[in-house]
């Protein structure tokens, strides 16, 4: 069957099935199981109302449980197992982890991931804040913001191609078509550089891609936060003779600190999972490996499920503090 036709059928079956399920199950509950009439009408209405939330939640809970909660447990178990011939799995304790920690590529991936985690959220948040502040009262600010926000819509793979062109290097005696090398030679560089193959520094050239994408996100949210600052606090500071820098750092920043933390952690999570950029631009060569790509290598190239799962658990472990923090905050807000 043609996939597009299959897609249409899936939409119809999926949407129809969902609507049918919700409608049918409600109808069944109200008319058959606990009808709101007869001698037990009052009790039946109450009983129906106890069950109804779970009818509404059921498909979502099934999907969440199966596609997110179960895999966390399953991956944890897989990371303690080794897959032998014929798919037979044996429990090996922490062997996958010790083997992984001994691998230089893993050490490299960890070092790079830490580097990414330090640089990308900081740079994106700072740049986003800068743009938000600069465009705050600008007449054409919304156009400027739109353009800086735009990379949000571009895929990591698309961005990888875009920046490969920026970093492109050609032999010294012909015209440079990568703008970075063009500028590098213009400002006194001696020869064109293969930017993505210079160990250590190439990490930063990859990070620039993610910073370029994430700055718009930071800007949108911080810009709204800046707008939300009460005018009086700023006016009072002006009356007291504060200069613009003091107003920005001493009055505005403290008031939006909560939002800055949210932006920072959100970008941190995006950074932790970064895969496509490295996969498409260097594939971990020239010492640019990161955890997510290392994991993919182990799972689908080396076909080593144990070590791949162990690597995935390391990513999970790094996310956990943020997860706990988010849940804690959400519970605070609900009280």
């Amino acid at each position: 069957m043609h996939p597009a036709l299959l897609g249409v059928i899936t939409i119809i079956v999926g949407v129809g099935g969902c609507v049918g399920y919700f409608y049918g199950s409600n109808l069944f509950l109200d008319k058959v199981l606990f009808p709101a009439k007869g001698p037990n009408a009052g009790r039946n209405i109450n009983r129906a109302n106890i069950i109804r939330p779970w009818l509404f939640l059921m498909p979502a809970l099934l999907a969440l449980g199966l596609y997110l909660a179960y895999p966390v447990v399953a991956t944890l178990i897989l990371s303690f197992q080794e897959r032998g011939a014929g798919g037979v799995r044996t429990f090996v304790g922490f062997e996958n982890y010790t083997k992984m920690f001994a691998e230089p590529k893993f050490g490299e991936a960890m070092r790079n991931n830490v580097l990414w985690l330090v640089v990308v959220p900081a740079a994106s948040t700072a740049l986003g804040l800068l743009v938000a502040q600069l465009t705050d009262r600008l007449k054409w600010g919304s156009i400027a913001k739109s353009i800086i926000f735009m990379p949000m819509a571009i895929s990591f793979v698309g961005a990888a191609v875009i920046f490969k062109l920026v970093y492109e290097a050609r032999p010294e005696d012909v015209a440079q078509i990568g703008i970075l090398n063009h500028l590098f030679l213009l400002f006194g560089g001696d020869e064109p550089q293969q930017w993505l193959t210079i160990p250590f520094w190439n990490n930063f050239f990859l990070m620039i891609v993610l910073i370029w994408i994430q700055t718009g996100f930071a800007m949108v949210i911080l810009s709204a936060a800046l707008r939300g600052i009460p005018e009086e606090t700023i006016e009072a500071a002006i009356v007291d003779g504060a200069n613009p820098f003091q107003i920005f750092f001493k009055i505005k920043i403290p008031q939006i600190m909560g939002t800055i933390v949210v932006v920072w952690t959100t970008i941190t999570i995006a950074t932790l999972k970064v895969f496509d950029i490295v996969f498409a631009m260097t594939n971990g060569q020239w010492e640019t490996q990161v955890l997510a790509n290392y994991m993919y290598d182990k799972l689908f190239r080396a076909n080593d499920w144990g070590m791949g799962s162990a690597a995935a658990m390391i990513i999970m472990l790094l996310v956990t503090p943020i997860l706990v923090w988010n849940v804690y905050n959400a519970r605070q807000e609900m009280k």
Partner: peptide
């Protein structure tokens, strides 16, 4: 679950 990396879900 918002922040659970989908990397974990691949193999299972």
């Amino acid at each position: 679950l918002l922040v659970v990396p989908l990397q974990l879900a691949l193999i299972p």
